[in-house]
Every structure is written in structure tokens, then in C-alpha cells.
């Protein structure tokens, strides 16, 4: 029997549980994502966040629960939502352009056509001029941009970003946040974002789920009402600090 979720939800995760070799990692996790929303999953490392993403991406099958995209069940089926990891995973033997175009080629598009579609977006992502370079020739920040563009080209629907910026140093990260907020203004990607960085979560998100405990459970949902477009100096406001206090209190720190 199929359960029809609320029409408003882009992505809906219902009552997902998962155990590995008898050890429960996720327990009864339900989260949702609306069209164009950016929602963060905040929690300590090893709290089951990545397992949850693998389930949403269809790489793992949950022991219990279901995943819906636009009301259609996608539990255990890869290829529906795009997925970006902390490692940029740009293939060293393909040019930046060919890396970015890879998801289109995998879908059966001709190489030339895929390249064309990819290069049309290079400027929007701040990657103009890097098309023919090898990934090794890009800086860390630029590589993440390229990885995000590849994610975006795979699906303009829903993106799962697993700590995409956590490997970057503080200054680069801050610049990438600025860039990311700018890009999001006009691409309106529905995004589920994993992070263990509280500041990053508040700055970027519309809503934050706190995923805590062993096994991981959603213990709190916090909506960030600050208007968009947000600027980096939002992190210095009293409002921002209020949110941060709330989260720290909820995490028991």
C-alpha cells in the first residue's frame, strides 16, 4: 500500500530506521524538504547523518520507513536525487568540463551536447575559464564549486550535500558560503545539507533538524526566519546569536 504524502513536500523521509549488524544507527527519522528550501541536518560526526543520505540517495535500503520524491516512492532506488560528498571526487583524468558534464553523459546524452549544457553554467558558478583545465589545477574552493555544478547538472530537483565545505580552510569556506548564497539566489535548488558546523547551518538554512544520540533521532526542528538574500555579516547579528544559543542548549552544551 502506498502512502501519499503531503503534496507540498518535495522530498519526504518517513519513519526511517537502519541498523548495521545489530547496532541501530537511525531510529524513526522523519524529515521533509519543500521546493526551493535549504534544510540542514546538524549533529555530531558519526551520528548517522551520512547513513541517512545514503538511504535517500538509494545506495542503502532502510530496515524500516520510506523515501518519497514528489510523492513517488524512491526507497532503495539510486539515480533520483543528486548527491555531493565532502570529497569533491572530481575525476583527475577528465577535464573540469568533462567532470561536470559526466552526469549528463551517464544519462545517455551525447558528449558534445553535454559539454555545451555544462559550459553554459560555468559563468553562473564562478568557474568561467576553467573548462579545459584538469581538476588538479584548481584550488580547493574552485573544486567544490565544480563538484556542486556537477551535482546541479545531475538534478535540478533535489541535492544532498554531505559536509560539502568542511574540508576547506576557514577563509576559503567563508568565501564559498558567500558564493553559495549568491548562486542559490537564482538557481533555487531544493537542498538537504549535512553539517556539524552550527554557524554554517544557521547562515545557509531555512530550517535545521538536530539529529542527535545513538541511534540518531531527530530531536528538534528550528526554522531560521532571517530574510534572504543573507550576507555574511548576518553571523554577527543578535538574531544569529539567539539561534546559536537555542541550538547549543538543545544539543546540551
Amino acid at each position: 500500500m502506498t502512502i501519499f504524502p503531503d503534496k507540498m513536500e518535495k522530498l519526504e523521509i518517513k519513519n526511517v530506521s537502519k541498523a548495521f549488524e545489530g547496532r541501530a544507527v537511525l531510529e524513526d527519522v522523519s524529515i521533509s524538504l519543500k521546493q526551493g528550501e535549504l534544510v540542514s541536518l546538524l549533529g555530531v560526526s558519526g551520528g548517522g547523518k551520512t547513513t541517512l543520505f545514503n538511504i535517500i540517495a538509494g545506495l542503502l535500503t532502510p530496515d524500516e520507513g520510506q523515501v518519497f520524491l514528489d510523492g513517488r516512492e524512491i526507497t532503495g532506488k539510486p539515480g533520483s536525487v543528486s548527491y555531493m560528498l565532502q570529497k569533491d571526487l572530481l575525476l583527475p583524468y577528465r577535464t573540469v568540463e568533462d567532470n561536470v558534464a559526466l552526469p549528463l553523459i551517464l544519462k545517455g546524452m551525447k558528449k558534445e551536447e553535454a559539454r555545451e549544457q555544462a559550459s553554459a553554467l560555468f559563468a553562473d558558478f564562478g568557474l568561467a575559464g576553467t573548462e579545459k583545465l584538469w581538476p588538479a589545477q584548481l584550488s580547493g574552493g574552485m573544486r567544490q564549486r565544480a563538484a556542486l555544478l556537477r551535482t546541479y547538472l545531475f538534478s535540478r530537483d533535489v541535492a544532498l550535500l554531505d559536509e560539502p565545505f568542511s574540508a576547506l580552510d576557514t577563509l576559503t569556506k567563508s568565501a564559498v558560503h558567500d558564493w553559495y548564497l549568491g548562486v542559490m539566489e537564482h538557481i533555487k535548488l531544493s537542498t538537504l545539507f549535512i553539517t556539524h558546523d552550527i554557524d554554517e547551518a544557521i547562515l545557509l538554512s531555512d530550517r535545521i533538524y538536530l539529529l542527535t544520540g545513538q541511534p540518531g533521532k531527530v530531536t528538534r526542528e528550528i526554522a531560521i526566519h532571517a530574510p534572504r538574500p543573507r550576507r555574511k555579516d548576518f553571523t554577527l547579528t543578535e538574531e544569529f546569536l539567539d539561534y546559536k544559543r537555542q541550538i547549543l542548549a538543545a544539543l546540551g552544551q
Binding site: N54, A57, G58, L59, P78, G79, S80, V81, S82, Y83, L85, K87, L89, L91, L102, P103, L106, K107, F154
Partner: peptide, 11 residues
């Protein structure tokens, strides 16, 4: 991880 990424893209 690269293999997992491609699989998530439906490869």
C-alpha cells in the same frame, strides 16, 4: 566513494 557517487547518479 567515486564509485558510490556514480552509482548515486544511476550509473
Amino acid at each position: 566513494d567515486a564509485v558510490a557517487l556514480l552509482r548515486s547518479m544511476g550509473a
